[in-house]
């Protein structure tokens, strides 16, 4: 922890009393000395107004081309909507198997959590200046992963590995389209690992929801390896891929 008077001491004109405090304070003393040294450095040579004006040409052209600001929720709606469409569409399109969940409560409880993550998580990934909410949502993704493993009945059925590969492939295939949408949406923002991770988690949750409702294998090992692990890999892949994508606007 730093001294509570640090900001008062490190002001342009600290009071004599604040300076006296700095002499004895082990936090403020060294900081004030460094602060004073930096004050001796001259401002960078000012750039002529004409040169500075030349830097705004692209901004003025952009403003002329798009005079109306696009509200932030348009992109949030695009991502959450794509996730919802894919989750519902894939769930309806796949054939229904006998339930392999510990109970109906687990079945629909986990489905509700994954659905919530797909839609609300996608929305939260885009909301501006909501880092704490995104951090909270990140904890929710961990809870969803745990629930997705614990909800199985424990009945593995036959051909565990081949069926598992099928599950992982299906999950990735279902997530492909919203992943592209998320990739596009994420390029609209400055690159942020937390935001991209949450967007990837919401996309993966849409694919995992469809699997969750249809997979006939209820063993925890199968669920962890072929449902949750590919989901996490999608998140990592999203974060890694974002580093190579261009950025449309560096705003947070």
């Amino acid at each position: 922890m730093s001294c509570a008077r640090l900001e008062e001491v490190l002001s342009e004109n600290p009071s004599a009393e604040a300076r006296a405090h700095a002499v004895t304070c082990p936090d403020c003393g060294p900081a004030l000395q460094a602060f004073d040294v930096l004050g001796q450095v001259a401002e960078p040579t000012p750039v002529p107004v004409a040169a500075l004006e030349s830097l705004k040409a692209s901004s003025v052209a952009e403003l002329r081309e798009r005079p109306r600001a696009r509200p932030w929720w348009v992109e949030a709606l695009v991502l959450a909507g794509a996730n919802a469409l894919v989750a519902v569409g894939a769930s309806m399109a796949m054939s229904w198997h006998q339930s392999q969940h510990a109970s109906l409560m687990w079945r629909w409880g986990a489905a509700g959590a994954l659905g919530l993550l797909a839609v609300v998580g996608g929305w939260i990934a885009v909301v501006p200046q909501a880092k704490r909410v995104r951090s909270g949502a990140l904890l929710f993704t961990v809870a969803c992963a745990v629930v997705a493993v614990l909800c199985g009945s424990g009945d593995a059925g036959g051909q565990a590995f081949a069926a598992g590969i099928g599950c992982a492939t299906t999950e990735c295939a279902i997530s492909a389209v919203p992943m592209l949408v998320a990739g596009w949406v994420m390029t609209r923002f400055s690159s942020s690992g937390l935001r991209v991770w949450l967007a990837g988690a919401s996309v993966g949750a849409a694919g995992m929801l469809a699997l969750h409702l249809h997979c006939p294998n209820g063993s925890a090992a199968h669920l962890a390896t072929f449902h949750v692990a590919p989901w996490l890999m999608l998140c990592f892949a999203g974060v890694a891929a974002r580093r190579f994508l261009p950025t449309f606007a560096h705003a947070p």
């Binding site: 901004s59 403003l63 501006p128």
Partner: peptide, 17 residues
């Protein structure tokens, strides 16, 4: 980067709360 900052400002102004 100054150019890019103000271009981003224009592009993302709808995100300013």
């Amino acid at each position: 980067l100054t150019q890019l900052t103000f271009l981003s400002l224009v592009r993302a102004r709808g995100r300013f709360l």
